[in-house]
Design a binder for these strands. Structure first.
Lengths: 344, 344
DNA sequence: CTGAAAGCGCTAACAT
DNA sequence: ATGTTAGCGCTTTCAG
């Protein structure tokens, strides 16, 4: 039995294999494979051919260890089923395209402990940057982020102190903005429907903003209804039925997301409510895949894609508008009254 | 200026730092941090404390290089906005929990070339396994997968030759199954609405299965309508209007996914069509977040979560039902007639 | 139970 | 333009 390097069929190829196959030093092979300019065309050709013929795939683990550079960006979001986050990820991917950086996604299920674990795993790969949702983290997670020595971007929410950079909207302001629109349209008995808010700080902040501004108008949230789990559309229906049964005099329903809002809208239309005259409705997110409902639900755009793009630009070191590091980017969401808030 | 190891504030901590801090050899520190049993409790305690106090995060790059083991599973899906794939990813994550393996997600945008690139990137991190959607890949991608020397699982679709293991459903059979249900319910003039099928082989196979079985019943697809991009709900509406305008005598519409089906359903209800008597409708995927529409759309469950779970089990080396390697798992989707196929 | 030596596959830095 | 040397931070292996 031979003991040559190629004796183990399961071992993957190394630079050395390519080097031997084409009679060029490992170092030069490495140069060619990293697209460095300082190699003669003839040598380059030889190396490329050999690498391709052998089916060589570089080992980034070794490369990263040697160069102390990892072209990965750790991205952590609470959920993928929320529809919000895939769009953020899309923005990140798009902005990272052609920067040489690659996003790596982790899901935290709205759990700070899980976020801490995922973060620990990800940081152990020494990424070039971290993008994560929200400003609320465990103390340990915060410490890791502060000590990582790489750019950190917290996204979605700007209502609070940031570790490094932030890109997002003020959910409190969004709540206030909606309150103003509701009051301006003449609604007076407002109900709120949303998720049980254990982990969803942004929904909580919107409700706080709403409540606060309504109070300034001498109004209050007259009733609330919360859910967790299940089909959002169906839950929207059920909660709407429940709250309208309990408080039939409500004239406006503010939902913490468009999906439950859509369920509520379908329910109300079926029951013959006169929308938006008798009853106004609004959601949150600017979820455009809901275009096509019988009526367009009023909503506030969460600027999801743009948030992803700007966050990625910060990590890529391009900054935003040329400015780099410790940035605070507040996007201003647009309120779309759709068909479910009456005009006066 | 000092040249001690700690002079660079941006360098991250190493085993050596922990070793020096607690007066235990690097080797033993390494043992403790990998939870190996052969360390005395006293030493273990000392090490753990030092590591925690310093905020040490292990360097998996170095670890992976030394041990030739990477606890990553590369997962590649065409899209995240499709709703189908987040659920598959959920199944994968859940099944990988507690196996020591970590999924890493890549998105290919239904492009074989992009898939090839993402695969190359991912393989260069030497993952322990690959899970990817579909059976259609570029020649180069196929070659990489065959030579990777790690378990490969192709998911979603089993209609074709596999590289290693496969977990999925037969989309052709799903098309045939729907054809049977349509014919059995007495519909005769069938329209098909779907995506432009450049990259979506599974939708194509469903249409082929449908067409083939209809032919056996002496029927054919009377009209078709395709779309790309935009809000699926809205597109469903628009396409439905278009096809019914062009072919008013259609008595059944088969949609390539539930989302456009939902749009079609809303349109038909608004226009006063008598569903399911005058016109039957069906989608595909078993998308349960659409529970809550005015009527329950007929659909076939794509077994998304289960596919993810089984694929992950194969990679984790648990096999399925104890069998390991080169597996072919065909799941049998259930047809749910909902409220939009008439009973006879 | 603990430690010392060697090396994983690659690249930075320095020759040539 | 190409080659040589050293070493990235860890784990494997072998000694004690």
């Amino acid at each position: 039995m031979t003991h040559s390097r190629s004796s183990d069929p399961r071992r993957s190829l190394t630079l050395r294999d390519v080097s031997e196959a084409c009679g060029v030093s490992e170092m030069t092979v490495s140069r060619v494979l990293r697209n460095r300019e300082d190699v003669s065309p003839a040598t380059r050709e030889k190396v490329l051919t050999a690498a391709r013929d052998l089916g060589y795939v570089p080992n980034k683990i070794a490369g990263a260890l040697a160069s102390q550079q990892v072209n990965l960006v750790a991205v952590m979001v609470p959920s993928l089923s929320n529809m919000v986050f895939p769009e953020v990820l899309g923005g990140i991917s798009a902005a990272l395209e052609d920067t040489g950086l690659q996003p790596v996604f982790g899901v935290t299920n709205y759990s700070p402990e899980r976020e801490e674990n995922v973060l620990y795993e990800m940081l152990s790969w020494r990424p070039s940057g971290v993008i994560l949702a929200g400003l609320e983290h465990t103390a340990a997670a915060r410490a890791m982020l502060e000590n990582a020595g790489i750019p950190i971007v917290e996204i979605m929410d700007i209502d609070g102190p940031a570790i490094d950079s932030v890109v997002g909207i003020s959910h409190r302001a969004a709540g206030r903005q909606m309150a103003d629109a509701i009051v301006a349209a003449g609604y007076r008995r407002i109900g709120f429907l949303g998720t049980k808010m254990g982990g969803d700080h942004r929904a909580r902040k919107r409700l706080e903003g709403l409540t606060e501004r309504l109070a300034e108008h001498g109004l209050e949230v007259a009733d609330t209804e919360f859910y967790s789990g299940g089909s959002a559309l169906k839950k929207g229906r059920e909660m709407t039925q429940t709250i309208l049964h309990r408080s039939p005099d409500l004239d406006f329903l503010y939902y913490s997301n468009d999906m439950i809002g859509a369920g509520g809208l379908l329910y109300c239309l079926e029951k013959g409510y006169d929308i938006p005259e008798q009853l106004g409705l609004a959601g949150f997110n600017g979820t455009d895949f809901l275009d096509g409902l019988p009526m367009q639900l009023a909503t506030i755009d969460a600027c999801r894609r743009e948030i992803g793009e700007k966050a990625a630009q910060i990590i890529a070191g391009k900054g935003v508008d040329g400015v780099i590091g410790g940035l605070r980017i507040e996007l201003t969401p647009r309120l779309d009254p759709g068909d479910t808030i009456r005009k006066r």
